[in-house]
């Protein structure tokens, strides 16, 4: 478990972090989201001991963060680079060695991961000869080949094609299954919904929301439902009566329609079902939970206005 307690960071007079408090459970995928300049990268750099906090502390399994923890972390920064003139294998071995592995361990780990990511044939090529996708795989391998227990990924999916995105997401799930803690910073809200257990939204150096993803989506639900039915649209409107507002309707053909409705008095799923089932042939009723994108926009906008 990682405990971030009252962490502040000032750059000269400017406060980049303002009393950050977070608990990141061991073995979870923890999302850190926020607009540009919110303080995410500063927090991540503090976790990686690249920067020191101006105030506050960080505990790793109850022990204050210190130099001994360096090898427990794997860090893929957003602005990531490579030694372009080095060969792939040499680059990976160098990274593994500065994180505490000896040469044999580093070689073994590098070869294992190159095999796993199917780029072993490129191990003796210079990095500047790799395609962008392959270079990104090398960057990802460089982050995890020393078997860290805490993996911090800052925008790990940017620039990847869908196949490689899936590869990385699958690998993150595997790490989670192995009990590793993954801290995941991204602007890609779909991936947050897909793999994060918990998420913290940082804005202007403060945590403005922190919860499990499902809880956050539930907390900010709007009472909207998606309904797919066969029948007359007038009958549909009559069945809803005045308790619902029809937000949109799409004709699917053969008298099938799909509509999005919003309850006016906070009706439950059962009440929606009961209202419609006697008048129409129903195929689907689904509560429309807000996406993380919507929650993000809502909270940031709301916070800007406060």
């Amino acid at each position: 478990m990682i405990e971030i307690i009252e962490v502040n960071k000032f750059f000269n007079q400017k406060q980049a972090l303002d009393g950050i408090n977070l608990i990141i459970p061991k073995g979870s995928v923890f999302g850190i989201i926020g607009p540009n300049g919110a303080g995410k990268t500063t927090l991540i750099r503090i976790l990686n001991q690249i920067l020191e906090p101006s105030a506050g502390k960080i505990l790793i399994a109850g022990i204050p963060l210190n130099a001994q923890h360096v090898s427990a972390f794997g860090y893929l920064p957003e602005e990531r680079g490579l030694y372009r003139e080095m060969k792939v294998l040499d680059h990976l071995v160098f990274l593994a060695r500065i994180r505490g592995l000896n040469r044999n361990q580093a070689l073994h780990a590098a070869r294992k991961w190159l095999d796993k990511f199917e780029i072993q044939a490129w191990s003796n090529k210079r990095i500047d000869s790799l395609s962008k996708g392959m270079a990104q795989k090398v960057q990802f391998i460089g982050t995890i080949l020393h078997d860290p227990q805490i993996i911090i990924l800052d925008e790990p999916l940017s620039g990847f094609d869908p196949l490689n995105i899936q590869l990385i997401l699958d690998q993150i799930r595997t790490f989670k299954a192995e009990g590793k803690t993954i801290i995941f910073s991204t602007h890609n809200m779909n991936s947050v919904e897909e793999i994060c257990d918990e998420v913290a939204l940082i804005h202007q150096g403060r945590v403005i929301a922190h919860d499990q993803v499902a809880m956050l989506r539930s907390k900010y639900k709007t009472g909207a439902y998606k309904v797919r039915f066969q029948g007359n649209q007038i009958a549909f409107a009559n069945a809803l009566w005045t308790g619902f507002e029809i937000l949109s309707t799409v004709e699917l053909g053969n008298q099938w329609h799909e509509a999005v409705i919003k309850s006016r008095q906070g009706q439950t799923f059962n009440e929606v079902f009961n209202a419609l089932s006697s008048a129409l042939t129903l195929q689907l009723i689904e509560e429309q939970l807000p996406g993380m994108q919507d929650i993000f926009l809502k909270l940031v906008t709301q916070n800007n206005h406060e």
Binding site: P77, E79, R80, L95, I98, G142
Partner: peptide, 16 residues
């Protein structure tokens, strides 16, 4: 060069 290609941040996560 290391500043330009951003490798320095990767290295600084492992060394002082």
């Amino acid at each position: 060069r290391e500043k330009i290609n951003r490798i320095s941040e990767v290295i600084l996560a492992s060394v002082k």
